[in-house]
Design a binder for these strands. Structure first.
Lengths: 297, 297
DNA sequence: TTTTTTATGTAATGTACATTACAAACTTAT
DNA sequence: ATAAGTTTGTAATGTACATTACATAAAAAA
């Protein structure tokens, strides 16, 4: 992976700033800068009172030292320290700065890209590995049927997921397109079956109803929703709160698909022995029907 | 309520403590926990005043939320957050592991995230603004009908795009699901109509055929394909070569959806006057059918 | 509807804090 | 040794903050 992204502020850390002036300090001041550097950067993330106590000096001495270093006040010093920490902690996905750098933010492509990566970053923070793994474990139980349903917009994701999961495991069913047929499909749901529901705003009454009924029949519900949580969340045993917010009003579905795909990939890996067999059979059938071109690779 | 009880429950991080209670919160409280988790952990390293402003709620609401989570005061909450941060920073091996964003590549979620962002970056490099804008211009001509078709897997994207474009402009048609009906639908295509085709490997014979026939009827084809290019590329006037490669064999659809969405957003902006009108009408119809819950925000 | 409960914000209060003013102690130069 | 400069601490002050008490608004129940 190309690492065109370079840390531009390496020479501008507060630690560097202090080290470059190490000779100008008086005894009490040396106590302070030593402590700051030794426990960098958390040593500075306390009140000036506490900091002075930790260094064994008085608060005014801390103030004078910081002014000597180049800050007008303790407050501004701490603010900069926080920013530096923030930047250090910001995650790898922010690497999109790379393309944002040589491309004007203004173009739609870049704005959408920016939104999507932000949504992705935030969504990843909302979902714990434990929860995700628990979902995969649940989906791996093939004696229980898996049903999938989505709403006006999200039915596309339901379909995408269904197409893939169908290959990976047995007993996968998608709800029919016509809402009128949903109650009928509901009859197929048995206790402990799993139901994957996609419901992002605006939350749909039909989905809520179907979820309640499925729940009453003993189904376990996995919910894909947005950060504001569909009402179905109270029926679900696993809820994925996905950030879908677009800056200028529109809601993005990309990250929702991302999680659907992540589940597909994870399940495929978990059930690989079986999946590979099913895939081979599928390939054979494709060959027979001659619907597809031969693999290029 | 004692503070000693706070972190007993196996949750190693405050983030997990919050996530384990995600269903207990009221609207304003959800705002807070979302913000805390989204910008974790630095979101908590500010004054309670600033935090409340960042969340758009009042300071007492922040206090109450933190008490609900299990802290006796904002101060103790922040103290624990600092300790957690301290510990994470001082342990170079598990460094950042606890935060999804910076987590080890090993977990599926992170591997998929990495793949997707790489694909996105590469794809953006392949598509010029000029070409993208040309596509938008073409789609903005509403006197010409717009037809959409996808394959076994990509039909989900065709559907997603259709659902959105239908709202934005007139004269949008998606091909029926059953391939047997495609020739029939072909009759609706008039000279200079636009046809959006999704075709990624393995390239499908039916799509190739339909594209040739549509081309013969004078349709202009916009093609969503992968980096190896579907044979349809020779029939298309605009080709979007999208990187779909997954590291361990699987093909990702996320970036394909990204481009579909980017087109939707761009077209919506271009046709906004008209789109907003159509959306308003759609809202009215939703209200009448009572299929959807009222908007929250 | 009316009442009760829940949710949220406004305003007041006391505390911890950053900052400043000033004085004491220490150092250096003559 | 003593005056000038330097370093450091004590105490005072004003501000920002966390916290609490109360009021109002919204939702749920009767």
């Amino acid at each position: 992976m190309s690492d065109i992204l370079t840390k531009q502020d390496n020479s501008h850390t507060i630690a560097e700033l202090i080290r470059s002036q190490l000779n100008k300090f008086s005894p009490a001041e040396i106590k302070i800068v030593n402590h700051l550097l030794a426990n960098y950067p958390m040593s500075g993330m306390v009140s000036i009172t506490e900091l002075s106590e930790n260094c064994g000096v008085s608060t005014p001495t801390v103030m004078r030292t910081l002014k000597k270093i180049g800050y007008s006040s303790f407050t501004t010093f701490q603010k900069e320290l926080k920013e530096e920490l923030q930047q250090t902690l910001s995650d790898p996905i922010t690497k999109h700065d790379k393309w944002a750098a040589d491309a004007p933010e203004s173009h739609v492509l870049n704005r959408v890209a920016d939104t999507v990566t932000t949504n992705l970053r935030h969504s990843l923070n909302q979902v714990s590995y434990e929860q995700f793994d628990a979902i995969i474990d649940l989906l791996a139980e093939q004696d229980k049927a898996l049903h999938i349903v989505g709403g006006r917009i999200t039915s596309a994701f339901a379909r995408y997921m269904n197409t893939h999961l169908e290959v990976i495991r047995e007993n996968v069913y998608i709800f029919p397109e016509a809402v009128a047929l949903w109650p009928h499909h509901l009859l197929k749901i048995k206790p402990n079956d799993v139901l994957i529901v996609f419901d992002v705003r605006r939350y749909e009454q039909d989905l809520i109803t179907i979820s309640r009924l499925a729940n009453a029949r003993g189904a376990k519900i996995i919910l894909f929703t947005d950060q504001w949580l569909s009402p179905i969340a109270s029926e679900a045993i696993h809820t994925l709160p996905i950030r879908i917010e677009g800056k200028s009003g529109w809601d993005s579905g990309v990250v929702t698909l991302f999680f659907a795909e992540a589940i597909v990939v994870a399940l495929e890996e978990k059930l690989w022995t079986q999946t590979s067999e099913r895939m081979r059979e599928l390939e054979d059938m494709f060959d027979l029907t001659e619907r597809f071109k031969k693999r290029i690779e």
